[in-house]
């Protein structure tokens, strides 16, 4: 009976800290992407090709943590929060909170999550590919190389300016966004 209760509460597979961790990381990634789109030209080039007002989200099914972003102006993304005001144009959906945890704790890369059928795309695939490239680029800029290589298929060659100056500016904006909202 106790085991049945544990199973139904999800205690065995999802520890008590996983949901708050995933929620925090979703917040960090959303705000990090917002900051990176204000600083990095590579990300700006990708965003520029998205339609005006384009909205996307990343969520853990069925009702797990989520972040929603919208194209804001010509080449930047703005963080909307955890609730979408309308159906997003593209939705990146983890099948389970645990799958989101694997990716957001850098145990499994985004491409591997797709290959393992853990991450689904609902919407136009071409836009989803641009978003994946934006996420990869942001991760390569702000994560230490030793962590980023676990998340990416190939760690890009970054100049000192890109890694330190741009990475530093993204961090500053990210912290500011996290603290002041």
């Amino acid at each position: 009976m106790i085991r049945l209760q544990q199973l139904n509460l999800g205690d065995l597979n999802v520890g008590p800290l996983k949901r708050p961790y995933v929620a925090l990381m979703m917040d960090v990634i959303g705000r990090g992407l917002e900051a990176a789109s204000q600083v990095d030209e590579t990300i700006q080039r990708e965003v520029r090709k998205l339609p005006d007002g384009f909205m996307f989200d990343m969520r853990a099914l069925p009702d797990g943590p989520c972040f929603v972003m919208q194209k804001d102006g010509d080449s930047t993304l703005s963080y909307i929060g955890s609730t979408a005001p309308r159906k997003p144009d593209v939705s990146l959906k983890f099948k389970h909170l645990n799958h989101a945890f694997l990716v957001l704790s850098f145990q499994e890369g985004t491409a591997r999550a797709f290959a393992n059928d853990r991450l689904l795309v609902d919407g136009e695939i071409a836009y989803a590919m641009k978003l994946v490239r934006c996420l990869n680029r942001m991760e390569s800029l702000i994560l230490p190389k030793v962590v980023a290589v676990r998340a990416l298929k190939r760690y890009p060659q970054l100049s000192l300016k890109e890694k330190l100056a741009d990475g530093g500016r993204i961090y500053t904006r990210l912290v500011k966004n996290l603290v002041w909202g």
Binding site: F114, A126, A128, V132, R133, R154, P156
Partner: peptide, 15 residues
């Protein structure tokens, strides 16, 4: 090609 969904399954990153 970079926007094609199959590119994500290629074992080597492609830019």
């Amino acid at each position: 090609a970079l926007d094609d969904g199959s590119i994500i399954f290629n074992p080597v990153e492609v830019d």
